[in-house]
Write a protein that binds this DNA or RNA. Structure first.
Lengths: 182, 182
DNA sequence: ACCTGAACACCGTTCAAGT
DNA sequence: ACCTGAACACCGTTCAAGT
C-alpha cells in the first residue's frame, strides 16, 4: 500500500471514529470525506460500503469485548461472568447510535460486511453461554443468536428511548435467562 | 373542509397505508404524493410532518388495540389478559417496519405528533398492568413505560433480525415480568 | 382555501479523467 | 496505483405563484 493511500485511509478512519461517537454510525459519508479532506471517491476506494467503514472504525472495541468473553469462558462462575459480559455488551452497543440496527441486520446476512464482526462476538459468546448453561444457572433453550438479539434490543432501547427503560429491559431479560430454582 | 381537499387527503392516506404496509413507515413522502397524484405541497398541507401521516394512517389499528386493553381491564384474570395484549401489541408493532423506532422516540417527547398515539396505548395499558400487578402475578416494580419500551424492542427485533429471535425475546421478557413463586 | 411544482440544500454511489 | 470531483438519481421541506 502506497504511503499516501495509507495516510488517506487513516485520516478517514480518524474522522469517522470521532463523528460516529457523536452522531452515530449513520453519519454522512460525504461529510466524513469532507472533514478528512479527502475526495469522496477515495473514501469509497478504501471502504466500499458503509458497513466496511463501521467495521474498521469499531474493530478495536469489538475485539476487546470478544477477548473478554474468551477470558471468562474458563472461570469457575460462568453464570456471573456471562451476566457481566452481557451488561457491558449492551452498554457498548448503546454507545453508537444506529449500531444495534446494523449488528442485528448483519447477524442473519452472511453476505454482509458486518457478518464477520458479529461472529467475532458470537463465537466466544457461545462458549461462555454453553458453560453457563452447563452449570444450570442459565436456561438451556436459549441460543447465542437469541442472546445477541436481546442484547442489541437493549442497546436499541437505550438510544431510542431513555436509559432507565433500557436497564429495566436488561433486568427483565437477565431474569428471564436465569433458571427458576424450584 | 372543501370537497376537493377532503378527496386529496383521502387519496394520500389510502396510498400511504398501502405503501407503509409493504415498505415500512419511512417511505418516501414524494413517492406517496406521486402515487396519490397530488402535489408534494398538498401532502405537506394535510400532514405537516411524517409522524402526522403515520398517525392518521395507523390510527384505526391503534385504537383497536387500545380498546382491547380497556375491555380486558375488568376481566377476572388480568395477568393472562395482559400477556395476551402484550403479544398482539408486539405483533402489531412488528408489522410496520420502522414503527417501533417512531413509537419509542415519541414516548418520551411530548412535543411529538406521535405522543398522543403512545398515550392512547399506554393509558389503558397502565390500568391493565396495575390490575395484573394487584393480583400479584406481575412484578410490581415495572411501569407502563418499561412495558412499552420492551414491547417495541420485541417489534424491533422482529423486523431487524428474524422472527424466531423476537419470539424468544418476548418469552424472556414475559418470564421476567412474572413474579417468582417461591 | 387550497393546489402546484420549482427551488434549495442535502444525500449515496459511480466512473471518466487525471497524476 | 491511487486520487478527484462532476454527474446521476434520489431525498425532505418550503414557499411564491396560481385557481
Amino acid at each position: 500500500m502506497r504511503a499516501d493511500a495509507r495516510r488517506n485511509r487513516e485520516r478517514v478512519l480518524t474522522e469517522a471514529r470521532q463523528m460516529m461517537k457523536e452522531d452515530g454510525v449513520d453519519v454522512s459519508l460525504r461529510e466524513v470525506a469532507r472533514r478528512a479532506e479527502v475526495g469522496i471517491g477515495t473514501l469509497y476506494r478504501h471502504f466500499p460500503t458503509r458497513e466496511a467503514l463501521i467495521r474498521a472504525a469499531l474493530m478495536d472495541g469489538i475485539e476487546n469485548l470478544a477477548r473478554w468473553a474468551e477470558d471468562s469462558a474458563d472461570a469457575e462462575d460462568p453464570g456471573e461472568k456471562l451476566v457481566a459480559w452481557v451488561r457491558s455488551f449492551a452498554l457498548g452497543a448503546a454507545r453508537y447510535r444506529g449500531l444495534p440496527d446494523h449488528m442485528l441486520s448483519a447477524a442473519t446476512d452472511a453476505s454482509s460486511n458486518f457478518y464477520r464482526i458479529c461472529q467475532t462476538l458470537t463465537a466466544p459468546g457461545e462458549k461462555l453461554l454453553a458453560r453457563a448453561q452447563a452449570t444450570g444457572e442459565i436456561r438451556a433453550d436459549v441460543t447465542v443468536d437469541d442472546l445477541f438479539a436481546a442484547v442489541n434490543a437493549v442497546g436499541w432501547v437505550a438510544q431510542t428511548g431513555d436509559r432507565d427503560r433500557a436497564t429495566t429491559l436488561l433486568e427483565l431479560v437477565l431474569d428471564g435467562l436465569r433458571t427458576r430454582t424450584a
